[in-house]
């Protein structure tokens, strides 16, 4: 396993400059992912509810929709309080958007992992090798 840095070398994942504000940047990214999942969940559940007639299914989906809306609100309020999300200060939100996009592009251009990550040798066997390919 060799780690080769893509040229030209501007910085690598060991450069201490990358640790600057790293926890805040990381948490902001995770919170944004969490918020988007909550939002997508509300939309998916509402869409499923309008496609369903079974009273049992509707009851479950309706309660999950309520729960999802409440969770979305909690995440939004947390993100606003932590200054990770600025729904009313659009210039600040614009700056955050651009900075996190730039930072993520920088990370994506780094060589973080070895070329071979199959790791198959770490497992004792192929689970179904006794079955034979003709039955697979």
């Amino acid at each position: 396993m060799t780690m080769k840095q893509a040229t030209p070398i501007k910085m690598d994942d060991l450069d201490p400059i990358n640790a600057l504000n790293m926890p805040e940047m990381a948490d902001m990214t995770f919170a944004m992912d969490f918020l988007l999942r909550a939002k997508e969940g509300v939309r998916n559940t509402a869409a499923a509810l309008t496609e369903t007639a079974s009273p049992q299914a509707r009851a479950v989906l309706r309660s999950q929709l309520r729960q999802g809306v409440a969770l979305h609100q909690e995440i939004t309020e947390l993100m606003i309080r932590k200054k990770w999300f600025h729904p009313y200060e659009l210039k600040e939100q614009y700056q955050l958007d651009q900075l996190s996009a730039n930072k993520t592009v920088q990370i994506a251009q780094m060589k973080l992992f070895p070329d071979d990550t199959r790791r198959k040798g770490m497992f004792d066997r192929t689970p179904d090798e006794h079955i034979g390919g003709n039955k697979a």
């Binding site: 926890p23 990381a26 948490d27 995770f30 969490f34 909550a38 969770l71 909690e74 947390l78 932590k82």
Partner: peptide, 18 residues
């Protein structure tokens, strides 16, 4: 899985609630 990566305790607690 993300609870193992976050730094903020409140965010982690909210993920655990989820």
């Amino acid at each position: 899985l993300m609870q193992g990566l976050v730094f903020d305790q409140e965010l982690k607690d909210l993920m655990q609630k989820d």
